[in-house]
Simulated assay, not measured.
Amino acid sequence: MKKLVLIVCSLYWLTPLAQAQTGTYKGIGTIVFEAGAPLSLIKGTSEAANGLIDLETGKFRFDVPINSFQFLNSLMHERFNDKYMQSSRFQKATFVGRITEKGPVSAKGEAKVTAAGILTIHGVAQKRTISGTLVQKGNTWQLVTDFPVKLADHHIQAPRLSSGYGASTMNVSLKMPLEPAEPEPQQIIAIKKFSFR
């Protein structure tokens, strides 16, 4: 009888941990991009990045509406959408793929991850491998990552800086809380269709 009670208690305490590391999670996060030197910085921020990840299979999908980025002034916002990103035509940037490596969860609740997939910006798809960190908080996770994007890889005209030179690379950072959730049917279809070759 004592053994049975011990087993039940063990299962009770282990269940939340197991749930925290498997299943479908989704969230809305903040994505920031910066281009140029500090004195001629172009910076955009969006709080409308959507994420869906299946921690059992490692498959994921992240996207952000291009016109959701906010800037220091309206002129920069207009040029970004009309001249550089053509957001009326290319409405979203997406990253669809699979987690290929996941390290152990540290004492701080952090796990290093590597993801491989297809990054599509400005209608141009590129294979990318991106590293990040998953931070566990109870039965939720937070994804933190930053990576460079070469504008030429996605056929984006380099914006002119005040120095007279063009910014050829964007530095992108993402912070997204992920909570256990049942995905919408269309999200399930999109994530199941993914194949990385």
Rank of each mutant, 00 (worst) to 15 (best):
M1Q: 14
M1Y: 08
M1P: 11
M1N: 05
L4Q: 08
L4N: 12
L6G: 02
I7Y: 04
S10F: 06
S10N: 06
W13C: 09
W13K: 11
T15C: 12
A18P: 01
Q19T: 13
T24N: 15
T24M: 05
T24H: 13
T24K: 03
Y25M: 08
K26A: 09
V32R: 12
V32F: 01
F33D: 07
E34A: 14
G36F: 02
A37Y: 14
L41W: 08
K43G: 01
G44F: 01
E47A: 15
A48H: 14
A49V: 06
L52E: 00
L52H: 10
E56F: 05
T57N: 06
F60E: 00
R61M: 12
V64Y: 01
P65A: 03
I66P: 02
F69P: 01
F69T: 09
Q70C: 10
F71C: 11
L72G: 15
S74L: 13
R79F: 00
R79H: 14
N81T: 10
Y84I: 02
Y84A: 01
M85C: 06
Q86C: 04
S87C: 04
S87A: 13
S87D: 12
S87F: 12
S88W: 00
S88Q: 15
R89H: 14
R89W: 04
Q91V: 07
A93F: 07
T94N: 12
G97V: 00
I99L: 14
E101C: 13
G109N: 08
T114Q: 15
A115L: 03
I118N: 15
V124L: 04
Q126P: 06
R128I: 06
R128E: 08
T129L: 00
I130T: 09
S131H: 14
V135S: 10
Q136C: 02
K137D: 09
W141E: 00
F147Q: 02
F147R: 04
P148Q: 01
V149C: 02
K150W: 11
A152Y: 06
A152E: 14
A152F: 12
Q157P: 00
P159R: 10
L161D: 06
Y165P: 01
G166K: 07
A167K: 04
S168F: 00
T169D: 12
S173L: 08
L174A: 13
K175N: 09
K175P: 00
P177N: 11
E179R: 09
P180F: 10
A181L: 02
P183S: 03
K192A: 11
K192T: 10
S195L: 13
